[in-house]
Amino acid sequence: MDRPTMTQPQALERVEQLIKETVDMMTPKPRLELYRPSVNVGSCLDPTDGGSENRVVINRSYYLHDIPKEKLGEVAGQVRRYWEQKGYHIEGVSQDGLGVAGRSRPDDFLLSLSAIGEGDFLGLGATSPCVWPNGTPEPSSSS
Rank of each mutant, 00 (worst) to 15 (best):
G77I: 00
Y35A: 10
G50S: 11
Y35Q: 06
R81E: 14
E91L: 11
V79C: 01
S112P: 05
L12H: 13
R103Q: 13
R103M: 11
D66L: 11
A76D: 00
Y63A: 08
M6K: 11
P4E: 13
G135F: 08
R36E: 15
R81V: 11
P68A: 00
D120K: 12
P133R: 10
P106W: 09
L122P: 00
S94M: 05
V75K: 07
I58R: 15
Q85H: 07
Y82K: 00
S143I: 03
T48F: 12
S142Y: 14
G87E: 03
R55S: 07
P68H: 03
K29G: 05
T22R: 09
E91A: 12
T136E: 14
L113W: 04
L111Q: 09
G92V: 01
S61C: 08
I116H: 08
G87V: 02
G73L: 09
S140R: 10
V15I: 14
H89S: 11
G123F: 04
P9G: 04
N40Q: 14
Y88R: 06
Q8F: 12
C44S: 03
G135T: 00
S114E: 11
N54T: 10
H89F: 06
E21L: 13
W83Q: 00
V100K: 06
L98G: 02
T48R: 15
L98S: 02
R31Q: 15
K20T: 15
S52Y: 13
G42H: 09
L113A: 04
S61D: 09
C44I: 01
Q17E: 15
S114H: 02
G102V: 08
G42F: 03
E74T: 13
V15M: 04
L34C: 01
V56H: 09
P106R: 02
L32G: 07
G125L: 08
G99C: 07
S143G: 11
T22P: 05
Q85K: 13
E91Y: 06
T127A: 10
P30E: 08
V23E: 11
R31K: 15
R60A: 11
P37Y: 03
L98H: 05
V57H: 04
R3W: 08
E53I: 15
L18S: 00
E21A: 14
L18H: 12
V56R: 11
A76F: 05
D107M: 09
R103I: 05
T5K: 03
